[in-house]
């Protein structure tokens, strides 16, 4: 019975959390701009509306375009099943760090191909920018996860995120450094500010929005949902890192841990909304600098983990 309940909660959070995360960001931004803004559940209505519409695709396209959004979506779902982004997951499969990173690359590669399929220069140039960003940010994501892996002596995320540590100062420091690195690199991976402005519609400057410019109807619904789910997975991992930095977190029972986890994800969404209202988009040439800071953060985390291992 509890197993069934766990599955239900998990499925419900896969469906609802991405949408709520997106809604929270939009609501926060609206409130900070003195608007009432759309309701938090607005992304759900949007998705429902999109799935009722027909699709218009370019006559240049072959099957790759529709296949790409489908496979990217399926891949993100597999990732939601694989990674421990929620601590109340009913079934914890073996989720290797490197496999997770390369499964994200799978989705990205398909998105890139989909944007090239129409032959439109908007899609192609944004794909080129996305490839550049991913080159810079992939080492940062991987190293952030690897730093945790080094510290807990395993490359299995399941082991890392269920570790009951005795909580020294180093533990907390590494959790926080890794969490920060994951969170900031997720901003790059998800094409949010300060790297890309998701609300702009000037094709020349945007990255993610230009890649999906040709998508419409149900196809667009799949892409949007996959993107939101990817966001929740990243925020889930980051929020767990932050929560586990507090020694008290391990003493709670699974329900309060799960609740805190969800609150953490929504809190990060709130923070992103705040960030996007307060800062401006970086000039394209400054972006590598920003990512270099993230990379150094994960390097520091990894070196600290190695240092802690040597001292032990």
């Amino acid at each position: 019975m509890t197993a069934l309940l766990h599955w239900l909660t998990f499925l419900l959070s896969i469906i609802l959390l991405p949408v709520l995360t997106l809604g929270t960001i939009r609501k926060t931004k609206a409130r900070l701009q003195n608007r009432i803004g759309p309701p938090i559940c607005q992304p759900i209505y949007d998705l429902v509306k999109l799935s009722r519409k027909g699709e218009t695709i370019s006559s240049t396209m072959c099957g790759v375009f529709r296949l790409s959004s489908l496979l990217a979506f399926a891949d993100i779902l597999v990732l939601a099943w694989l990674t421990p982004w929620l601590c109340f997951k009913p079934w914890a499969p073996h989720s290797n760090i490197f496999m997770v990173v390369y499964l994200f690359a799978f989705a990205r590669m398909f998105t890139l191909l989909g944007s090239l399929d129409s032959g439109s220069a908007f899609g192609a140039f944004s794909a080129s920018r996305e490839a550049t960003l991913s080159l810079l940010v992939e080492p940062a994501v991987l190293l952030a996860l690897v730093s945790l892996g080094i510290f807990f002596g395993s490359s299995d995320l399941r082991v890392i995120f269920s570790h009951q540590t005795n909580q020294t100062f180093t533990d907390s420091a590494i959790w926080i450094a890794a969490g920060l690195a994951i969170f900031f690199s997720s901003l790059v991976e998800l094409s949010r500010m300060p790297v890309d402005d998701p609300t702009t519609h000037l094709e020349l400057t945007m990255i993610h929005e230009a890649m999906i410019l040709e998508a419409s109807g149900r196809n667009l619904a799949l892409i949007e949902f996959a993107h939101a789910l990817k966001m929740s997975i990243f925020f889930g991992l980051a929020s767990q890192c932050f929560l586990r930095a507090f020694p008290q977190f391990n003493t709670f029972n699974v329900y309060s841990q799960g609740g805190l986890n969800i609150v953490g994800i929504l809190g990060l969404a709130l923070f992103v909304g705040l960030l996007e209202s307060l800062i401006v988009k970086l000039q394209w040439r400054k972006v590598p600098e920003f990512i270099a800071y993230i990379l150094s953060l994960s390097l520091i985390a990894s070196l600290a983990a190695i240092g802690a291992g040597v001292i032990k």
């Binding site: 218009t56 370019s58 006559s59 240049t60 489908l70 779902l77 129409s118 908007f122």
Partner: peptide, 24 residues
Amino acid sequence: LSMLAASIYMIFLKTSKVTKYRTW
């Protein structure tokens, strides 16, 4: 992956009404 992709295609994408138009 293949099962998810196939089922989503069958349920969601296959029934979608597609019109062709030139690239934006």
